[in-house]
Nucleic acid binder design. Structure first.
Lengths: 198, 198
DNA sequence: AGCTACCAAGCAAGCGCTTGGTTTGTAAAG
DNA sequence: CTTTACAAACCAAGCGCTTGCTTGGTAGCT
């Protein structure tokens, strides 16, 4: 019964506590190496009791992803809405995604990237649809900047490069190190629009 | 007994054919979801016969990684050696890593990134040592460029950003699409040293 | 009474791996 | 040219264990 911190955007109902615990375990050991007995033990119930809340183990994984996509899409939306210029909006998007990915929803976001293929085909399709909304927010901002001449590379490709940069951050970024998330966001921003005055 | 193309740097001995088949399966289904029966079937032998060549299933994974690191470290070395200026060397490094990651060793390289945690701690340490040589080649070139003033960001951080960009490429890059690997390498190069004349 | 949340026990399937023996290729000994 | 020797490569069968999930029942709250 090792207690685990809850993830932002997930409530603390019995179901929510299971989701947070599962996300932690999925990130640390992977979906396949995490047993339902592991998840049950980390919230202090019997393994069979899990299936009162979820039909299958895979449903747990999908629920984790669904919750974290919804939560972070909303965060992205607010990031765009609270800035005027394309440059500031892009900086805010990068900052928000970094916050998602190494901050308060890190476990669930990492799981979404690394355990994607553990979803069945139809659940992948459903999750992909949710993720499409998330990606469109990026593409809108990037396309604007591109049309303004802020960079020449195709916006779709630029988004892919940014996805790689932010997605790799959990493998090396140290939240207690000298580099802040704001610093890192600015460094990544400069990869897109060049190193001009902040 | 679905035949699978061999991976560059792996011979076609019985052992080598097992490694190539395993790399394919590990990439497509993941290490844990690939059974020794799957691997055996794809080269046309019985599952038990695998253990004449490898002590454990995990040893197969490690062997895949070891071979691909050695092969690609050598490729990186030649990339550096065959160019004079820092800029050209960096472009060659990016191009070589892209070739590794979406080209002739794609399966094995992808496996090394995505199935890393399936290795035991001591095997991780051994593989990490091999990977250190590979990374040093990058850092030497990046540090040179940094000292020449080609970019201001810390070379270590820059390498992490590049790792993310190249590492994500398998998720979207289409080898039959309009964008060539040389094009992509130049786009990534511009993320480091800015968009000057080629 | 009825609902949510849970327990205790266990089943069927699939897993990595072992075992004892057989085939196949090669090469020196007669 | 045959015989003997031996190792590499593989087969057929299955063992012991773990896994996701089921079942029938109970405690507590409203």
């Amino acid at each position: 019964m090792a207690e685990s911190l809850s993830i932002n955007g997930i409530d603390d109902s019995p179901r929510g506590r299971l989701l947070s615990a599962a996300a932690h375990l999925f990130r640390d050991k992977g979906f396949d190496r995490t047993t339902v007995r592991d998840i049950a033990a980390s919230v202090g119930i019997q393994s069979g009791s899990i299936f009162h809340h979820f039909k299958t183990k895979e449903d747990i994984l999908y629920a984790v992803m669904e919750e974290v996509i919804h939560f972070n899409t909303e965060r992205l939306r607010q990031a765009v809405a609270s800035h005027d210029t394309g440059k500031d909006q892009l900086r805010a998007l990068i900052r928000a995604e970094l916050q998602s990915i190494v901050g308060d929803t890190a476990e669930a976001m990492t799981v979404m990237v690394t355990e994607w293929r553990c979803l069945s085909a139809d659940k992948q399709a459903r999750a992909l649809k949710l993720r499409g909304i998330y990606e469109q927010l990026w593409l809108d901002v990037l396309s604007d900047l591109h049309q303004q001449g802020a960079f020449t590379t195709d916006p779709f490709i630029m988004r892919r490069l940014l996805t790689g940069m932010t997605g790799w951050a959990p493998h090396w970024f140290d939240r207690d190190g000298p580099l802040s998330l704001d610093d890192l966001a600015n460094i990544m921003l400069a990869r897109v629009i060049g190193e001009s005055a902040p």
